[in-house]
Design a protein around this nucleic acid. Structure first.
Lengths: 331, 331
DNA sequence: GTGAAAGCGCTAACAT
DNA sequence: ATGTTAGCGCTTTCAC
């Protein structure tokens, strides 16, 4: 059994209250007693029990993080942003994979609240009624990261997905493209709805009719990017540019184009969305909407610290700036 | 304030012990009272406080996971393996990035033990004396994942890194290669020492002299892979095959080879080590030592559950089988 | 500046 | 089958 605060108190010849003060850096302790206590702590190898502290203080300095899949390049970069800021503010994170499964998500929220986390960062796809209910009933603050709640009820950090796609497509059109393919993710997810809206708005702004056959829905995997591209390339008049909603799908698209003997960007230009490290690891390197992945995580965690600290926040719905990094997959 | 076990007891007209029994699935409860209690729980929206439970029971059903960098593809796959098995056995994980910084690692271990985790999974580079001391003093079990302790004092899960490299190099030699480049990671890390040993052993077994100039040390990044390759290709007699210790470096190597107008595998064959999803996302696809990344994490966590449960384990130093997946980067 | 004492919400003997 | 009673190790008033 390791030493408790009581053991230290006895060893130092003071009360546990005083030990507690020393441990917590309370200034109301005479330097000499502080020294006595510190020495006793060292001698006994005392390490405060955070669980007991959590029970007494009702703070665990731990936040829950629910993420679709930590092994995804995109989400793991987000997670790194979250963890770095958490560390900076002295929090630890309990990390849970949800696979975007609603039941699992709800269960995880409850487990984490049961563990008395001081706050929650949630990443997911669609925010349903069930989520909203859990979040609003939560005794601790919740922040969404790279996840949009259409009602804007929950604090969140995102970019303007619609505008980002609008920018890309407009750029394509201004460079003479008329048939522009779009490999999107599932439409249940609001982010993808916004992307589609941006795509349509850009076409409309340039008087180009929308064509259903130029839009394909993938599941973010390399394979689904390839498959979508197979469809596009099977058309009599192939697209000359493709916008893709996820990096792995974009790499799939590029490879399919190349496998069919065409060249990127000469025959078809490609722009992707996530700007993960992957974009540098393909040939040609991928032009991408530069969604600040790490920053979204970092800002979300920072926002959460403010909320946990009951600080006033101007806007709880943060929209981070984006830009577009043009690399070799565009002319 | 949310309801406590005491509130539920009053609401159901029983004692808190009974409520506790119901909550914990203790069979010694009459079905009718169980029902009464369950209803009271539902009515009050009672959710057990895991912190209080942890203090009373001395179990938190939480394990600490120390990882160099969650945003690395390799480690995030490992982490996923760990988390999946943790979930399966009803544990949550507190995830901490160490950046392989020894001081940070030691601090994290102490923080996690302070939070009373029931066990620890550690991933890192070199295991120093300081680590060993923390681990042996730890009141809870520790398992190393994809991390070797040269003294084999701490339970661990790995593959036979030396043999893996030996296999690759032998295969190269048997296919006629004589000059084989080797892009390794830092030698302080035992895994890389083993890799180097395998490289040397294979050469020796085939009477090929070892040449210092064919071995380069990278830092696992794409860029360092490119740079090492620049060195190799600057030699009068270039290597005709290269073995690389990490996927991102291998992609850098391939791109450098291609950028210099040579072809993989025609001019130079390349084999890498981690077999992450990246190997499928390059052209040519990368042949790789198939280190079962996810499984290492999963097995490490499984081993930890046994240790936490004080079950007997045959071998605490687990060596998982590996094989080699030959893809397009080899003939 | 320091100590005493009452919880925090639960589990785990021990009774009954 | 159920209730009683101590803690678990700490924080936090409230006195002094």
């Amino acid at each position: 059994m390791s030493a408790t605060i009581y053991d230290v108190a006895r060893e130092a010849g003071v009360s546990m209250a005083t030990v507690s003060r020393v441990v917590n850096g309370n200034p109301n302790v005479k330097p000499t007693t502080r020294k006595k206590v510190s020495e006793a702590i060292k001698r006994l190898g005392y390490r405060p029990n955070a669980v007991a502290r959590g029970l007494a203080s009702k703070k665990t300095t731990t936040v829950g993080v629910i993420i679709p899949d930590i092994s995804s390049v995109f989400f793991s970069e987000l997670a790194r942003g979250i963890e770095d800021i958490a560390t900076m503010y002295n929090y630890n994170i309990i990390l849970c994979n949800s696979d975007q499964n609603k039941d699992k998500e709800v269960r995880l929220i409850q487990t984490l609240l049961g563990k008395q986390v001081d706050g929650l960062v949630f990443m997911g796809g669609k925010i349903a009624e069930d989520h909203i209910e859990e979040f609003t009933n939560s005794p601790v603050p919740v922040v969404l990261a790279a996840t949009v709640d259409e009602n804007e009820k929950i604090p969140s950090v995102n970019i303007d997905y619609e505008q980002a796609v609008y920018d890309v497509i407009s750029h394509f059109i201004e460079n003479g493209h008329r048939r522009i393919g779009f490999i999107n993710g599932p439409l249940e997810i609001p982010i993808n709805k916004h992307r589609l809206a941006g795509y349509k708005r850009a076409l409309a702004a340039h008087d180009i009719p929308f064509e259903e056959s130029l839009v394909s829905i993938g599941d973010y995997t390399y394979e689904s990017g390839k498959e979508a591209t197979v469809q596009f390339l099977a058309q009599e008049i192939k697209p000359t540019a493709i916008y893709v909603a996820a990096d792995e799908m974009a790499i799939g698209a590029i490879h399919e184009i190349q496998d069919q003997g065409m060249k990127v960007p000469q025959d078809i230009e490609v722009v992707t969305s996530e700007n993960t490290r992957l974009v540098q690891m393909v040939r040609p390197t991928l032009s991408s909407v530069a969604e600040p992945t790490y920053d979204i995580g970092a800002v979300a965690m920072r926002l959460l610290t403010k909320l946990m600290n009951s600080e006033k926040v101007e806007t709880a719905t943060v929209v981070l700036p984006h830009h577009i990094d043009y690399r070799q997959s565009t002319k």
